[in-house]
Design a protein around this nucleic acid. Structure first.
Lengths: 169, 169
DNA sequence: TAAGATTGACGCGTCAATCTTA
DNA sequence: TAAGATTGACGCGTCAATCTTA
């Protein structure tokens, strides 16, 4: 018995609604962020991830893994952020091939200023719109999908310890 | 009483899981599509939207609205697709300023071939992983979020009649 | 003057090639 | 030889400027 060629009406409505929510929500959050700060979403992710590192510095590889970015995307983006003084690059003591990315003072200030605004935006458009029950349901859905997407072994989902801190969302 | 500075642990877990699902699911679907066909996600969206139009042709503005694309994004992308022979542009009879985008024969063949594969991919990674109850819950969540995102008047959500046909997802 | 649409410049992400050290 | 990382070329999306017809 093969799969039907199309989705059922219910399935299609759900699929479309889900994708539309993603599109509009993401663009709204990006709009808020760029209006209220000097940071793009990717900038914000880099800075807030570095905030969670000890010494505010991480190996490029580790950072890329956390962000789920390719190494070349990271190198390009870090290059631009370095130009703007948000992060700095330094040689890696343990491994001569490696690089360490460090949050600069001005990067620290930028993320400190941006974080509460971004959290407020996430609350306003997303968190506050859903009951705790629904939010939990969404998390279950996401976990289920991720499980099948090969989340089992690697990546954030498989992290036994969650030591994240400071600038969270 | 102002909002707390951060999200609660529950909220943050849900928020992260939701975003991670989006990232991985979208990249998996894109990977499947480009592996199995000659089309990118945006190509697929353009072609399948045109399929839903009578005469397989739509005003550029209408097409852009359905896709929720900017007019310049549409113009650029249609230009590239025209080069590849997937669509054609023609003058608009009703309005000398307007343009009509038409699905070409080869575009029609491309979407016919791609659609079942794409639907299968969506089923495999998404639809089949969720019970009907959960899928309905997700649709409700999406609808709720969209409602607050200014979905009330315009856009797909406000469509009273859903006359979509043919190549659906 | 405004609406429909296109264009060019620029910033960003991907892919393949490359460089350096393990 | 492989791992860590960077680089350049290219394709795509955004923004502002522009062109044409209403």
């Amino acid at each position: 018995v093969s799969e039907p060629r199309w989705l059922s009406a219910d399935q299609e409505r759900a699929w479309r609604a889900y994708r539309r929510m993603n599109r509009l929500l993401y663009s709204q959050l990006a709009r808020d962020l760029t209006r209220e700060t000097e940071l793009s979403e990717p900038d914000y992710e880099v800075l807030s991830t570095l905030t969670e590192a000890k010494e505010h510095s991480w190996r490029a590889t580790t950072l890329a893994e956390h962000l789920q970015w390719s190494s070349s995307r990271l190198a390009h983006h870090i290059g631009r952020m370095e130009q703007r003084g948000l992060v700095s690059r330094e040689a890696c003591p343990e491994d001569g091939r490696g690089a360490r990315i460090r949050l600069s003072d001005s990067g620290w200030q930028a993320i400190q200023a941006a974080a509460p605004l971004h959290v407020a935006s996430v609350r306003r458009h997303f968190i506050n719109r859903l009951t705790p029950t629904r939010l939990a349901a969404l998390e279950e859905i996401a976990t289920t999908i991720l499980l099948y997407l090969g989340e089992s072994a690697a990546g954030d989902g498989g992290h036994p310890k969650n030591t994240r801190r400071s600038v969270k969302p």
